[in-house]
Nucleic acid binder design. Structure first.
Length: 509
DNA sequence: ACCCCTTTGAAGTCA
DNA sequence: TGACTTCAAAGGGGT
């Protein structure tokens, strides 16, 4: 996979090391091969081909709902860029209109509703316009404020939020970074697309040149930028981009539409003063109160200040983008509510996607990472280490001392830590029997419960039992059990079963 | 209020 | 360099 920056060591495997093995049974392979037309092969090679194919020949995945291929997408993207540039003189006026309309219709249900942007849809080739800043598109280093507030409506102006009838894998929802800034860096998108996935440092027109990253430049960034206007500011208590910005500041709130950027810095803003979806303050509520009362925060220690620095979130990876888009669909079609269960379904769906479909998300993720890199040159994922509370050390200690840990289990039975799993439960994570307190409370044998060899495919019932732990194997005597319990859910786990026709329970593709 | 669960992928640390 | 860890999102559920 031609990930930017060389990618991490684990990026060459479509399955995570912790992946539940039940999801790699034969049924899945049988399902995949005829669809994608590719056998299991070197995964790194496979991933490498993902982007290449997506960027090269127009794939037009041929799947229902996948829409035009990448070539069409590129063409539309270039068209919209041209159109966008042509529109710059009219940008201000049109931007205001677009902004208004977009805030009403296009974004009100989107998780990224606060971002009025020019968006390219890799899946359906639609470019939707809105009131986005235009400076970056102008390709001038000082353009950050110049053309702001300019909205350029291109393409079909398709609604951004997913609709029931929308193509399944059309990447129809906005992505936090790419979509947020795409209008400011159309040239970047074009650059990416034209380079066949080869990352090349952006030249004189990189985004950092549009947004002065020096603190002194904050005040120079025009507050007329449409996407930086107060309704877009994440001033709600959580102050994250998960919030609908339109609800963050009430009409009667004591904030002018264009608040001084310095007031925004600690609430979801980049150091440039630009609000950004990846920036989440630690205590938005508190900061909001400060703003509310017009008070200066009490003197703080350096540590406190450090702790209150807004958190710049990691850019979303391909799967996370996919989850964001598909979660609502799964929730709507199933009666499931638990995110963990939904994520399991989404994980399976992800593996069931064709390479072309996955490529869309890999490409989006790549752009997000690149944009993130441009916006926060000094940022490192390490910055957020430890911010998800303790856990890590405790888990680490546990894994070293807990005999029920899969690591220990595998070591005890001389199993391969990467390819073997933990005995009866076949998990690479903690032994589920241990969790359930069975027997000694840990795996006692590397042999599966039905006596089959340790490296045999996991039994479907194990999967079902795991997915729906409330059901005992006795209750789940049929692979259709799950489906019966979830009559509207097309994501039947019966896919785990060899005896089940491929794709049974899945929506038509 | 906080953490866990669960998924995959990217990027970090460590030996 | 490989193995391992952490964190991205989500929200119900448990403590």
């Amino acid at each position: 996979m031609p990930q930017l920056g060389g990618g991490g060591g684990s990026g060459d495997d479509l399955g995570a090391t912790d992946e539940m093995l039940a999801f790699k049974d034969e049924g899945e392979q049988e399902e995949k091969i005829p669809q994608g037309g590719f056998p299991e092969r070197d995964l790194a090679d496979l991933k490498s081909s993902l982007v290449n194919e997506s960027e090269g020949a127009g794939s037009g995945s041929g799947q229902a709902g996948s829409g035009p291929g990448q070539t069409e997408v590129l063409r539309r993207a270039q068209n919209s860029q041209r159109l966008y540039q042509d529109k710059i003189p009219d940008a201000l006026e049109e931007g205001l209109k677009a902004q208004d309309s977009s805030s009403v219709g296009m974004y009100k249900e989107s998780v990224y509703s606060g971002y009025n942007l020019l968006v390219h849809y890799p899946g359906n080739g639609v470019s939707a316009g809105a009131g986005a800043g235009a400076g970056a598109g102008a390709g001038t280093g000082a353009g950050a404020g110049a053309g702001t507030g300019a909205g350029v409506v291109t393409g079909a102006g398709q609604s951004l939020h997913a609709k029931p009838g929308q193509p399944s894998h059309g990447v129809t929802q906005l992505t936090p970074l790419y979509e947020h800034f795409s209008s400011h860096q159309t040239h970047i998108s074009a650059d990416i697309n034209q380079k066949q996935g080869v990352h090349r440092p952006l030249q004189t027109t990189d985004i950092s040149s549009f947004y002065s990253l020096s603190p002194g430049g904050v005040g120079q960034i025009s507050h007329t930028m449409g996407w930086a206007s107060p309704p877009l500011y994440p001033l709600s208590p959580s102050c994250g981009y998960r919030q609908h910005f339109s609800t963050a500041v009430s009409p009667g709130a004591p904030y002018p539409r264009f608040t001084h950027p310095s007031l925004m810095l600690s609430s979801g803003m980049h150091t440039t003063g630009i609000p950004h979806p990846a920036i989440v303050p630690h205590s938005g509520k508190q900061e909001l109160q400060h703003y509310d009362r017009g008070l200066k925060p009490p003197s703080e220690t350096k540590q406190e200040k450090e702790a209150k620095k807004p958190t710049i979130k990691k850019p979303l990876n391909a799967f996370m983008l996919y989850m964001k888009e598909m979660r609502a669909k799964v929730i709507a079609e199933c009666t499931l509510k638990e995110s963990a269960a939904i994520n399991q379904i989404l994980g399976r769906r992800w593996h069931a996607l064709s390479r072309e479909e996955q490529a869309k998300y890999y490409e989006l993720a790549r752009k997000e990472r690149q944009l993130h890199m441009q916006l926060y040159p000094g940022w490192s994922a390490r910055d957020n280490y430890g911010k998800k509370k303790r856990r890590s050390r405790e888990k680490h200690q546990e894994s070293n001392t807990d005999p029920g840990s899969p690591k220990k289990c595998r070591a005890r039975f001389g199993l391969n830590q990467q390819t073997d799993w933990c005995g009866p439960c076949r998990r690479k994570k903690k032994c589920i029997r241990y969790l359930q307190g069975e027997g000694e409370g840990r795996c006692t044998s590397p042999v599966s419960s039905d006596g089959s060899a340790i490296d045999s495919p996991p039994s479907p019932l194990d999967s079902l039992q795991y997915i729906r732990p409330a059901f005992t194997p006795d209750q789940l005597t049929s692979p259709t059990d799950f489906t019966h319990r979830q009559p509207n859910c097309p994501f039947s786990l019966s896919l785990h079963l060899k005896s089940t026709p491929h794709g049974a329970g899945l929506p038509a593709r």
